[in-house]
């Protein structure tokens, strides 16, 4: 399916899905946090989409807008197309339902995002730090992360 057609088809899936045009190369949609697992499950199971693999999960800290953007990159082996699904959550209370039940690899990808951004995943079976020690304070990839240890590059 072509990029525009795919984007339109995914948006027709549910009223909680809306298009996103920030990506230059692939279809992208915004999904409301509460509807995420159901939508991703339908994207996986419906044969016209068949998004079998969760390739990647990224978080972006939009500090000016007070939001985290959580991006899920999906791939379909059957139709050979990509889709990026975005979820916006408030920075003060970043909570989103987990995708572990739909794509098992989400368990660790979500742990990475929790570790570096502090996004909490509802119903996650094993939410703990992945790269840093359990007693680490703060979430280092947030834009406002401060640390006595870090050095700034001399300009």
């Amino acid at each position: 399916m072509e990029r525009e057609a795919l984007q339109a088809a995914v948006c027709e899936l549910d009223s909680t899905v809306s298009p996103l045009d920030a990506n230059a190369d692939r279809a992208a949609v915004i999904v409301e946090a509460s509807a995420l697992p159901a939508i991703v499950r339908r994207l996986r199971d419906q044969p016209q989409f068949a998004f079998a693999q969760l390739l990647d999960h990224v978080a972006v800290d939009w500090i000016d807008r007070g939001q985290f953007e959580l991006i899920y990159q999906l791939y379909s082996f059957k139709h050979k197309h990509f889709l990026s699904v975005s979820v916006f959550v408030p920075r003060e209370d970043p909570r989103v339902p987990t995708l572990c039940r739909v794509h098992p690899v989400a368990e660790w990808q979500e742990r990475e995002v929790y570790d570096l951004f502090g996004v909490l995943y509802d119903d996650h079976p094993d939410l703990r730090r992945l790269f840093l020690e359990d007693d680490w304070v703060g979430f280092p990839l947030r834009k406002d992360y401060q640390d006595d240890f870090m050095l700034d590059r001399p300009r």
Binding site: F131, P140, Y145, D147, F149, M150, L151, D152, R153
Partner: peptide
């Protein structure tokens, strides 16, 4: 990895 790294030992 010396600058802006929160983990690397110098």
């Amino acid at each position: 990895f010396i600058y802006h790294s929160y983990t690397t030992v110098r």
